[in-house]
Design a protein around this nucleic acid. Structure first.
Length: 474
RNA sequence: GCUCCCUUCGUCUAGCGGUAAGGACACUGGCCUCUCACGCCGGUAACAGGGGUUCGAUCCCCCUAGGGAGCGCCA
């Protein structure tokens, strides 16, 4: 049997974290078994579906690298097929017309709730009834078996069993003739020869009735795997308000797709003590039956750690391209300063996201507006004046603007003044970078460039003199 | 309310009848060091509770509690 999995989002919003993981699991399973992964857009809800959402989902999949072998298929283009199946079910007696009014159903539900019963359709029209009027509206219901129970072996949950008397006769066609979800999934999964249905566990309760329909149609029941949901940082369900951000938002926030994928695959799944997985390793090692049953909480801290790991591990040339983009977003022309590859090389161990990397690299490309307040307070004080003046002198005299001579010049100044190198380097760092943290002082100066360095040192000296003058007059 | 599902450090997880309950993130002590990071060494921290079964339960069974999902002419 060739493995065929699918991802079937409804285009009513973005591709969010939960959907992305379900897609990843399905994709991995197909890739692992040399099968196919198909994408299907479940857009039968005309009210809520939008093309913008379809595009957002496709964009998210592309960014993550979850390529599909077939599709995207749109359910809206398959209405004829659904109508055909519904007719077959009618012909074989597995479905019937129901003329019950919404009012009647509403009352029924209230009564059942009051009686502490599970609300369900009572089969009023099951035996066949006369239409209240010749042109009375009706829905079509699936005739669920009354006896026995449905069992299936879920690849992550194990055996799940539910009694048929818990199930009622669900609507498969609305009064306007359009098919409902439970019918369309079943028909599509069958037509698309899906062998393994991997989806969120919010579908567990639908599965038994879907199995009953599949059997009524005389079709093959696929293997199911219901993956647990992902909770927000607060342990509550993900919502628009916290965490359920679109996958694309992570790209904007400076995450690498490899990091997000790695994070997602470890949510509910593990392989020994391994934390880092390349795509190839995931494909080789992942197995849907090793997935946990319990929901898991999304933890940005760990994602950040992984992201930093991938930033460190990725070729700086590649990082440079991303950095260019994020610098651009900050209004910086990346060609106006040092080579991006060099900057990425010295910064890639210092940033958890590409956005952060752009932020801490800004000073390479333009003079900062003002010194970081705390850093200036600590380092740009009277005691730093002489060292900075001497450093300026030494640097101005340098012929070769390279890390080694620069560092030699600094140590010479420090020695001459009988200071530790830090007493010289820190004020200089604040002068040139605007803050007390930066890559090594030598490469920092080199990349900023001689002219800019001298200019900024002068500015820092002005700042110190002004500060000294103020404290004297006070 | 009813049905189904879930429950190991704060978080992600390992465990599959006998372990000092392992790893990772975070937190934290130290080393390295021109800063920040990186890296390295160390630490704190968990089997929801109660009954069984068993020589022995994190692991098997039952109950309780807590959490989640479903119960639509949404998907």
């Amino acid at each position: 049997m060739t493995v065929r999995t699918r991802f079937a989002p409804s285009p009513t919003g973005y591709l969010h974290i939960g959907g992305a993981r379900t897609a990843l699991f399905s994709w991995l399973y197909a890739r692992k078994h040399g099968g196919q992964f198909v994408l299907r857009i479940e857009d039968t809800d005309l009210e809520r579906s939008s093309e913008a959402s379809v595009n957002a989902i496709l964009e998210g999949m592309t960014w993550l690298g979850l390529d599909y072998d077939e599709g995207p298929f749109y359910q809206t283009s398959r209405f004829e097929r659904y109508a055909e199946v519904i007719q077959q079910l009618m012909d074989s007696g597995h479905a019937y017309k129901c003329y019950c009014s919404k009012e009647r159903l509403e009352k029924l539900r209230e009564k059942q709730m009051a009686n502490r019963e599970k609300p369900r359709y009572d089969g009023h029209c099951s035996a066949g009834v006369e239409p209240p009027s010749p042109d009375a509206p009706f829905v079509i219901r699936f005739r669920n078996p009354k006896e026995g129970h449905v069992e299936f072996d879920d690849l992550v949950r194990g055996r799940i069993s539910i009694s048929n008397d818990e199930l009622d006769d669900l609507i498969i066609a609305r009064s306007d003739g359009s098919p409902t979800y439970n019918l369309t999934v079943v028909v599509d999964d069958s037509d698309m020869r899906i062998s393994h249905v991997i989806r969120g566990d919010d579908h567990i309760n639908n599965t038994p009735r879907q199995i009953n329909m599949i059997r009524a149609m005389g079709l093959q029941v696929p293997v199911y795997a219901h993956t647990p949901m992902i909770l927000g940082e607060d342990g509550k369900r993900l919502s628009k308000r916290h965490g359920a951000v679109s996958v694309i938002q992570y790209r904007e926030d400076g995450y690498l797709p490899e990091a997000l994928l790695n994070y997602l695959v470890r949510l509910g799944w593990s392989h020994e003590d391994q934390e880092i997985f390349s795509i190839d390793e995931m494909i080789e090692l992942f197995d849907i039956s090793d997935v946990n049953r319990a929901a898991s909480v999304f933890n940005t801290e760990k994602l950040l750690w992984l992201n930093q790991h991938y930033i460190k591990a990725t070729d700086p040339k590649h990082i440079a391209r991303h950095l260019s983009h994020h610098l651009g977003l900050r209004g910086i022309d990346p060609t106006s300063g040092p080579d991006l590859h060099a900057v990425a090389t010295v910064q890639h161990e210092r940033a958890k996201t590409l956005v952060e990397m752009a932020e801490i690299s800004e000073f390479f490309y333009r003079d900062f507006d003002e010194f970081d307040h705390k850093s200036a307070k600590k380092h740009l004080k009277a005691a730093a004046q002489e060292p900075l003046e001497k450093v300026r002198e030494a640097l101005a005299a340098l012929e070769a603007w390279e890390p080694e001579p620069i560092y030699a010049a600094l140590t010479a100044v420090a020695e001459a003044l009988d200071l530790k190198i830090g007493k010289v380097a820190q004020p200089l760092r604040v002068a040139v970078a605007g803050r007390a943290a930066s890559p090594g002082i030598d490469v920092t100066l080199q990349l900023v460039g001689k002219e800019a360095c001298l200019r900024r040192i002068d500015r820092a000296l002005d700042y110190i003199r002004q500060r000294v003058a103020q404290s004297e007059s006070a």
